[in-house]
Simulated assay, not measured.
Amino acid sequence: MEVYAGVDVGGTNIVCGLVSSSGDVVYQIKRATEVSKGPDAILEKIAAMIEEAAVAYAEQSGVDISVTAVGIGLPGFVDPEEGIARFAGNLGWRNLPAVQKLQARLNLPIYIDNDVRTYVYGEAMYGAGQGYKDVLGITVGTGIASAVVNEGKLFYGFRNMSGELGHIVMEGLEDPCPCGLHGCLETYASASGMVRQALKALRAGEPSILQSWFPDDKLEKLSAADLSRAYDLDDPLAKSILEKAGTLLGRALSYAVPLVSPELIIVGGGGALAGDRLLTPLKEELYSRILPDYREHLKVVTALNNDDAGVTGSAMYAKQKYCSSSM
């Protein structure tokens, strides 16, 4: 059986899956990234996970497994043409020849790209974006990033640096961003940004049910999911944070829509689990700021395969690259 391996690499976990040629995830495993062990140890773990998955699925299914190619989604700036991870801050990588090292270890075609691009590619082609030609995808997680898929092809821009929507500087925001700017969208509207805003307000004494859930010595355990729980109990602080985050996201997307003219916007990542709590203000702000000709033909939805899109997208990206190179 011919399969493609898709690997989604994060600062905390690595998820590796085997995906059929039709885009179905047939086997999947997850391991801790262990960033402190360094890049070579992480690359070895990726290689070992691919081998482990192939053996385990062959035993489980009772059929011979052949991994045709491997696709890997990496955080940060990636040069897919040269196969180099230019900069991944949360992994501590800079100018790492990831493809060269993994090909030497696995003797398989290896293709890498930015993890958000592979995630959006998976959702656009095999998830919520099926049937649409022009898709803009956005992930709301530790940070915020986006990608565009046009008729099955990813858009990259100069130096492969398109999609950094989270680093649009928004009027009215002043918090410093690790990128060096102040007031970036993701300082407030990412999942981690919303938590930071909640912590800041709680420490300033703003009333909230969250104070009883998380006394001072437990505040650091607060998560974006807790904000959604509090929102559902009409907590004013949680509602204010989620509604403002949705509004800011809608405003930022209103800048992107006239540039790329998508017919569908997909919102994914951990922040998308907030659902309509985030999407309702997002849509209200977005639709109020774009021309009717855009608004009347634009849908905004959450990701269909939020957990698997990174693996599916990486594997199917590898399939697309492999098939193109074989023609």
Rank of each mutant, 00 (worst) to 15 (best):
V7P: 03
I14G: 07
S20N: 11
S22G: 03
G23F: 10
V26F: 02
A32L: 14
P39K: 06
E44A: 14
I50T: 01
E52N: 11
A54M: 10
A58V: 00
A58L: 00
R86I: 15
F87V: 14
A88Q: 00
N114F: 07
R117S: 03
Y119T: 10
Y126M: 04
G129M: 05
V135D: 05
L136A: 05
G137L: 13
T139I: 13
A145M: 02
V149G: 02
E151R: 12
L154M: 09
S162H: 05
G163S: 05
L165C: 03
G166M: 12
H167I: 11
I168P: 00
P176R: 14
C177W: 01
S190G: 04
G193N: 09
V195H: 12
K200N: 15
K200Q: 15
A201G: 03
G205F: 15
S208V: 07
Q211L: 15
F214D: 01
D217E: 14
E220T: 02
A224K: 00
S228Q: 02
A230L: 01
L233T: 03
P236R: 11
L237M: 10
A238G: 05
E243Y: 13
K244L: 12
V260S: 01
V260N: 08
S261T: 10
L264A: 10
G268D: 09
L273N: 04
G275F: 04
L278C: 04
P281F: 11
P281R: 07
E285Y: 02
E285L: 02
L286N: 06
P292K: 13
P292R: 11
R295E: 15
E296D: 13
L298Q: 02
N305R: 12
N306A: 14
A309L: 13
V311F: 15
G313E: 12
A315E: 09
A315K: 08
M316P: 06
Y317T: 06
Y317R: 04
Y317I: 12
Y317M: 11
K321F: 01
Y322N: 15
